[in-house]
C-alpha cells in the first residue's frame, strides 16, 4: 500500500516535471546534464523513503568518488612524485652528477610505502607498523610546535590584545570560562562550577552560530540544485 502511494507520488512529480518542461521549458540537449538531473532526482527520492533509485545513486556516488580520488592520487602523488622524478625528469641528477640524497629521498619512502603491502601476508604483517610509525611519529613531531604557536600563543595573544570595552571583557570571560568547562581534573563545584556553567552558555552560543551557518550552507546547496534542475536541465527559469 505504502509502495503504491510512493509510486503515485513519484509519477505525479515526474508528470508535473514533463508537463512543465514541454509547456514552458527549453530542456537541455546535453546527455550529461540529463544524467546529472536524473541522479539528482534519484537522490531526492530519499525524502519519501529509502528506495532503489536512491540506493543506486548512493552506491554510484561512492564508486565514482573513490575512482576519482584514485586517479588524483595516481596523477598528483605517484606520477608527479615517484614515477616522473625517477624515470622521466630524473631530479636526482643535478649538473650531470648523481645525488644520492635526492635519489634516496624518493626511493626510501617508496620502499617504506611498499612495506604497507605486508599486511596482505600472514607472517610479515607486522612490517606495516614501520611505515605507520614513520608517518605517525613524523606528523606528531611536526604538529607540536605549530600547534603551540597557532592554537595557544596566537589565540592567547588575540584574546588579551584588545581595547578596554564591554565586548572585550566578554571575550576574556568567555575564553576563560570555556577553558574552565573543559577542565575535568577537579569537580565542577562552587566557583569552578559556576564558571563552568557560564562556559556552557558561551559554548551553546558558538554551537548555535555554527548550526545556523550549517543550515544556511545546506539551504544554499539546495537552492543551487533547484537552479540546476529548473534552469540548466528544464530551462523553465531564465
Amino acid at each position: 500500500m505504502k509502495e503504491r502511494k510512493g509510486l503515485i507520488i513519484g509519477s505525479v512529480i515526474m508528470i508535473a516535471i514533463f508537463v512543465l518542461m514541454f509547456i514552458k521549458g527549453e530542456p537541455s540537449k546535453s546527455i550529461m546534464v540529463w544524467i546529472a538531473a536524473i541522479l539528482t532526482l534519484s537522490i531526492y527520492s530519499f525524502l519519501y523513503k529509502d528506495n532503489v533509485f536512491y540506493k543506486f545513486a548512493e552506491h554510484l556516488f561512492v564508486g565514482v568518488s573513490v575512482g576519482y580520488s584514485v586517479s588524483v592520487v595516481w596523477q598528483n602523488a605517484f606520477i608527479r612524485r615517484v614515477f616522473d622524478p625517477l624515470f622521466i625528469t630524473r631530479t636526482y641528477i643535478v649538473n650531470d652528477k648523481f645525488s644520492l640524497y635526492l635519489f634516496l629521498g624518493i626511493v626510501i619512502p617508496t620502499l617504506l610505502g611498499l612495506l604497507m603491502l605486508s599486511i596482505f601476508t600472514k607472517k610479515q604483517a607486522w612490517l606495516i607498523r614501520i611505515p605507520i610509525a614513520f608517518v605517525v611519529g613524523s606528523y606528531a613531531g611536526m604538529g607540536i610546535a605549530p600547534s603551540f604557536q597557532a592554537n595557544i600563543f596566537e589565540q592567547t595573544r588575540s584574546t588579551l590584545y584588545v581595547t578596554l570595552s564591554i565586548s572585550a571583557s566578554i571575550m576574556i570571560v568567555g575564553v576563560i570560562s570555556t577553558l574552565v568547562y573543559f577542565f575535568f581534573s577537579k569537580e565542577h563545584k562552587g566557583l569552578l562550577g559556576k564558571t563552568a556553567n557560564l562556559g556552557i552558555w558561551f559554548i551553546m552560543i558558538a554551537f548555535g552560530a555554527s548550526f545556523g551557518y550549517t543550515v544556511m550552507a545546506r539551504i544554499s546547496l539546495l537552492i543551487g540544485r533547484m537552479q540546476f534542475l529548473l534552469h540548466d536541465w528544464l530551462g523553465v527559469i531564465k
Binding site: 592554537n151 588575540s158 575564553v175 576563560i176 577553558l179 562556559g199 558561551f202 552560543i205 558558538a206 554551537f207
Partner: peptide, 12 residues
C-alpha cells in the same frame, strides 16, 4: 565576541 570566545577556548 561570544562565539569567538568559545571557539578560542575550544581551539586552545
Amino acid at each position: 565576541y561570544p562565539n569567538m570566545a568559545a571557539q578560542r577556548g575550544i581551539l586552545m
